Amino acid sequence: MDLLGSLSADSAQQGPEQAECSRKGCRLQAQWQVKWNNPKIHTPERRKIWLACAEHREWLENFLKQRLFWRSTEPLETGTASVDGEFRG
Rank of each mutant, 00 (worst) to 15 (best):
D84Y: 15
R57L: 12
S11G: 11
E17N: 02
K65A: 14
R23C: 05
R57N: 10
E61I: 12
N37E: 11
R47I: 01
Q14I: 08
G89R: 05
S11L: 08
S82F: 05
A81V: 00
S11M: 12
W70R: 01
L68Y: 02
R57I: 07
Q18Y: 01
T73Y: 12
Q18T: 00
S72V: 00
A12Y: 14
L64I: 03
V34H: 03
I41D: 03
L51R: 02
K65T: 09
L64W: 03
E86I: 10
D10W: 06
F69A: 06
H56W: 07
D2V: 03
S6F: 15
K24M: 06
K35M: 13
L4S: 10
W36R: 06
H42Y: 02
G79N: 00
S6H: 15
L51D: 06
E61A: 12
C26D: 04
T80C: 02
T78V: 01
K40Y: 06
W70I: 00
K40T: 10
K24E: 07
F87D: 04
R71E: 13
V83M: 11
G85I: 03
Q33A: 11
L64R: 02
S11D: 15
I49A: 08
A30P: 06
F63Q: 10
C53Q: 03
W59E: 14
Q14S: 10
I41C: 02
K35N: 13
G5W: 08
I41H: 05
K65G: 13
R88H: 08
L68V: 01
H42Q: 10
R23A: 03
C53M: 09
P39R: 01
R88C: 09
